[in-house]
Design a binder for these strands. Structure first.
Length: 464
RNA sequence: GGCCCUAUCGUCUAGUGGUUAGGACGUCGGCCUCUCACGCCGAAAACAGGGGUUCGACUCCCCUUGGGGCUACCA
């Protein structure tokens, strides 16, 4: 069975790049009827933090990236010891007592001589093992070149000379990334490793480990990285870093996932993918090879698409955290209608919530620019006329409202915009808002007339 | 420095020897219109450079250049 995993280290928040790796792994597993495992790689005690683990889980859940199983490397020490002992027994690993100072000096000298820094194998065949000195464990690197096939990069080749007897266990007794990573992938039966191509050289080292364990490595797909707008590696200074910040900014998880999957992967000209389609179409063949620049504008566009096309009540559930206090007094049906009028007018949930606030709360100020332009004394009479017509209109019937406006336009020989804008400002406080009739119908007769009366008061009287 | 990856419009990408080099975001025009959006129509915009291979290269090979990564008792 296909088994993939996402293996973040909790040394920071879940960011866009990590999420995308998770998304690729998740959909590849689901596309192949397989399992997706979450593995928290918290072997670095210094830098790992529980709050980050929590944030990672929360971010994945928010995006509905659900794992079939989860494990923590910090709890798997016994397993690593077992694998290590086997290596010892077979003479494939050894204890190294070299001090950091010696290593430092060695490196310096090698660099000076124009050589690549390599561990010199000083402790590789030590006759006597000192009892009380601290040590690290190194592997005996097999002297064979390393070849592997990558789904996106094709045939890869590394000379063993590029590597040395690297450390797998620290002097504090904890194990290192390349070792735990391989042991866990073997133990969990991971079939496909999908990760960033910054791991390409790690993969070579890891394959050396697979050889020492006499195991076959999994299949690999090294996906291109995500770059910031300045084409450097995505980092804190490129704006929002944690995926939860996108949540707070009013981005829909569906939109984010859709955006991320298209960064480095494509399916012809198709841009919009729902979950079913991703499960159906996602594959490793269409992965791209080169790094991609993160483009916030396109994310926003996708978000707007999702907002536009989402059923209002579903949207409403996402919206709850963003809505104004005043909206809590209104029932779902009312809010649904309000949301509908705003769907095509918002790029984010923040904008949507802000834009529909007026449905729940009378405007407390009238936008300056619009007022100046539209609340002119010349519309005072027409507005009073309109108000009178609206008083006898049927607010559940658009035609009836339309008639009131048309009569006013005819009576004073003015254009719709002349009266629509003052009404709009009265209703919402702004000169940009949904259509006049839909707003009037939703707000209802009583509320609408109150607001219109109020705005008429603000219109200066004609100087007679 | 060494090793590795990579290179199509500003950005995301389609393209796998013969195309007017296609789509999307963004930009700029226009239409629609009670405002703002939405929608619709249209425009500008790319094969990094140089060598090969070939009847023919965006497509294959090499070099240069640019970008990225790794080179830790981080992951």
């Amino acid at each position: 069975m296909t088994k993939t995993r996402f293996a973040p280290s909790p040394t920071g928040h879940l960011h866009i790049g990590g999420l995308r790796t998770a998304v690729f792994n998740y959909f590849f597993a689901k596309a192949n009827n397989g399992q997706f495992i979450l593995r928290i790689e918290d072997t670095d005690k210094e830098r790992s933090k529980d709050e980050y683990t929590k944030a990672i889980l929360e971010g994945l859940k928010w995006c509905s990236i659900e794992w079939d199983d989860i494990c923590y490397q910090s709890k798997r020490n016994d397993i690593y010891e077992k694998y290590l002992n086997k290596l010892f027994e077979e003479g494939k690993a050894y204890k190294c007592y070299c001090s950091k100072e010696r290593l430092e000096k060695l490196k310096e000298e090698q660099m000076k001589n124009g050589e690549n820094p390599h561990y010199d194998g000083h402790c590789r065949n030590l006759k006597e093992q000192p009892e009380d000195k601290p040590y690290v464990v190194r592997i005996k690197l097999p002297e064979e070149d390393i070849d592997f096939k990558d789904y996106v990069h094709g045939d890869m080749h590394f000379s063993y000379k590029e590597f040395d007897d690297f450390i797998i266990k620290r002097s504090d007794g904890s194990f290192m990334y390349n070792f735990t990573n391989v042991v866990d992938d073997i133990e969990c039966g991971i079939t496909h490793v999908i990760r960033g191509d910054d791991h390409l050289t790690n993969t070579a080292k890891q394959i050396a480990l697979y050889r020492l364990f006499d195991k076959n490595p999994p299949e690999y797909a090294h996906v291109p990285m995500i770059l910031g707008e300045d084409k450097t590696r995505l980092s804190k200074r490129h704006g929002a870093k944690s995926v939860l910040e996108y949540k707070d900014a009013g981005i829909l998880p569906e939109a984010l996932v859709n955006y991320l999957i298209r960064l480095g992967w494509s399916y012809g000209d198709k841009e919009l993918f729902n979950r079913e389609e991703l499960i159906k179409y996602f594959n490793l063949e269409n992965l791209n090879k080169s790094a991609a620049v993160f483009n916030p504008d396109k994310l926003l566009w996708l978000n707007a698409e999702y907002i536009k096309n989402m059923p209002p009540d579903e949207l409403l559930s996402y919206l709850s955290g963003f809505l104004d206090e005043s909206c809590k007094e209104y029932d779902k049906e009312y809010l649904k209608k309000a949301v509908e009028t705003m769907q095509a007018r918002a790029n984010t949930l923040v904008e949507l919530a802000e834009g529909m606030k007026f449905y729940c709360k009378k405007p407390d100020v009238y936008e300056g620019k619009g007022s100046k332009k539209y609340l002119k004394q010349s519309v005072k009479e027409p507005m009073l006329f309109l108000l009178e017509k609206l008083e006898s209109a049927d607010f559940s019937n658009e035609e009836s409202l339309k008639e009131a406006f048309e009569l006013t336009m005819k009576e004073f020989d003015i254009k719709m915009v002349k009266i629509a804008q003052p009404v709009r400002i009265g209703l919402t406080g702004r000169s940009a808002a949904p259509g006049i009739y839909e707003m009037l119908m939703i707000l209802g007769k009583k509320e609408s007339l109150e607001r219109i009366e109020k705005v008429i008061d603000v219109i200066p009287n004609p100087s007679s």
